[in-house]
Design a protein around this nucleic acid. Sequence first.
RNA 1: GCGGGCGUGAUGGAAUGGUAGACAUACGGGACUUAAAAUCCCGAGGCGAAAGCCGUGCGGGUUCGAGUCCCGCCGCCCGUACCA
Length: 871
Amino acid sequence: MTIERYNPRAVEPRWQTAWDEAGLYETKTDAPGEKYYVLEMFPYPSGRIHMGHVRNYTMGDVVARYKRAQGFNVIHPMGWDAFGMPAENAAMQNKVHPAKWTYENIASMRTQLKSMGLSLDWSREFATCDVEYYHRQQMLFLDFLDAGLAYRKKSKVNWDPVDMTVLANEQVEDGRGWRSGALVEQRELTQWFFKITDFAEDLLQALDHLPNWPEKVRLMQKNWIGKSEGLMVRWSLAEGGKPEGIDELTVFTTRPDTLFGASFLAVAADHPLALKLAESDPKLAEFAAECRRSGTSAEALETAEKKGYQTGVEAVHPFDPNWKLPVYVANFVLMDYGTGAIFGCPAHDQRDLDFARKYVLPVKPVVLPPKEDPTVFSIYSEAYDGDGVLFNSGFLDGKTPDEGFEAVASRLENADLAGKPIAERRINFRLRDWGISRQRYWGCPIPVIHCEACGVVPEKRENLPVELPEDIDFEKPGNPLDRHPTWRKTSCPQCGAEALRETDTMDTFVDSSWYFARFTAPRAENPTVPDTANQWLPVDQYIGGIEHAILHLLYSRFFVRAMKTTGHLDLGEPFKGLFTQGMVVHETYKDGREWVPPADVNIFEENGKRVATRISTGAEIAIGGIEKMSKSKKNVVDPEDIIGRFGADTARWFVLSDSPPDRDVIWTEAGAEGAFRFVQRLWRLVSEAAPHVAGTGAVSDPEAQPGLDIRKAAHRAAHGVQTDIERLGFNKAVARIHELVNALAGPLSEIGKADANTKAAAAAALDMLVRLIAPMMPHLAQECWTLLGHEDFVSAQSWPAVDAGLLRDDSVTLPLQINGKKRGDLTVLAEASKAEIEQAALAAEVVRQALNGGEPKRLVVVPGRIVNVVV
RNA sequence: GCGGGCGUGAUGGAAUGGUAGACAUACGGGACUUAAAAUCCCGAGGCGAAAGCCGUGCGGGUUCGAGUCCCGCCGCCCGUACCA
């Protein structure tokens, strides 16, 4: 009998249609089974899916299908993170309307995603740029405003003085605007903020109750929130040099114990003191202007060379009226953190030390490290930030830094400066309120109105949605809403007078901060149906990239708190389980200066070295590094091509198999072909065996071979795959399935000649195998399932039950070590006691030789693990 | 700069502090074939004839035992609040 090759191009669309028609993956809130919410981070509709999407959505799909087989009522929705800058850039470059560009991209990406055979509930799909979605987001905004969670304040933006527009941080390159090339300036605008800092303490504390989040993400968020306990210390400014009206300077410090090591004070360029001084000091004004030209990103600010400007103002040390310290304006002091002013202790802070060396300021150590001699200990090029004993510090001498903190705090709390205590204890957070204003068109309009008489007035709820106008132009840079001829003009909801609409739109992070909640009732009149949201949420397993470890996840955590405050749901945390998957990377190829796409490259081995040639020209080209797939380096593999050539199951299998899911996976042609061969191998195995195992009954003799081995292999694989999927160890689950197929290949090749008992065992094993691969390769599994004589859907089958008795062995082989090095094996009964193992070990030939008649120094026995004899 | 992570054969990787290299890819040998592809079987960390020695980015340490834990480096990746 000849077996045809498995043809995914015919099989996959056929089953996808059948699943669709059966409504197999549409979720009913009242269906039986415990709820389980699987969600992958929804994509930005860039136009085409990439391998990163394939990997992300395959992982989620495996979990969804596995949980369904376990009897859960699974919800697995999909949508589009559809607002954002790329649509506006496309509008400027290609004169296409952002909406048209976005919805066309969504249409083609939807088709691509559907070809992957994902078990998604498409009936819940929406895009964040749908009016129906951002309408509800505006409702949330108004509720947040009422609850005091939204407010306006001044804040800085990157301003391009040539294009007269606000730039995103990524649009600033080396301090210049990416289009105009003009030096960027910082500008202050009044903008909208969400009060995430109201929840700072809770956002921090609750991290301890997210056991199913990666430790690294919790740590990153903890550090981002940055709670610190410190002291606000007021320094009086010395007479002469201090500007009129400013008599003191308040700094925040977490190290008051090092006060005696202070050698300077520094303030931010935008600190009130700096602004005041700059009025009469042109050089300072120029220095401050220079500080403002670096753009607003923390990275740019902090990697810039540390510079300061000595103002001539002096501050008086709180413990010594005769000790005066110079006050600098410094580019590394941030106005957003603490009070925008610091005192520098060079001996115990590296940045302060670098600053002190540059401006030749004193470096006096005040913390003595253990085992150091106070008479000779000095600081050279490295600051000491460890523990020790305070010295050179007057009344603090001999105390630990912690005791010093307390001593300084209690003394200064009770000391007086101009009728108020000099210092005050303060808990400070690094976390800042979330600025949501964007001066752009393609985003959710902020539904407020500016009235000359009434000020800032929320739009009436019955007037929502505030819709984006469609007739806009992108001829000029800047916000099209601002220059629209009529859109802004409206009447004040309060007094009815002529008024203007807010033209800022919301940060797209707002859109993605509650979409998971909207999925639970995607067509509801209100943002959520609270009962339904509470029933489905939290998301049990959320899967996405590590790049979202802080902002997106923290903003979503804020949103459920704010939505709870405003009555939209009742939930502690949005995501119960979180998994961060790695990227898909690919080798790069270069023909001279030109990057060459992998599709135009032929790789072969010559004299043990890999050689690449360009298919179109035949020329040998250079093999470059393995990098994140990017258009600029052309090292992109298009999932559509892969699915067209090999089918979705091959693509899915490959992205699951080759790397641990939290690490990067390297896409290789050979790996993809290998996955395709495995698909064919599985198909052949099942289709050759199917006629022989059809209609076999139950296993009659459970102990007979080879039936027992076949059953053991199947049950062990099922157990392993189950454990691995539970832990999202997909690559290991794949290895377990390889092992099972390897184990079945021998017996199945002779199944035609086998007895009924063996056939029955083989039939059961094949049945199990197909169920095990179903979450990962659903189309192939379905086709095999049908071959094995079933008429229903394998996706509707339950997960195979594992017989624990088949997982055990009668005897185990332990490695036998002598002095920690393996010298032999020891086979003992599985239930052997420690003493029995010890006896067996001492009786072993290698051990007797090593002991040479003597006694072992030590005998380590870990049952089921190892025996180590120390001689 | 700061915060977080990662580093194991030719390659991707496996390994509750307990046999380093499961499983796969590439490669080599064999079977089948007129031939090739596909398929099946076998081999394989390095050095060595073997016994054995060496081996998880580098340098130290803890332990009966370290890829795993601790300290110090190096390299790469992610984030750094207006990319999503």
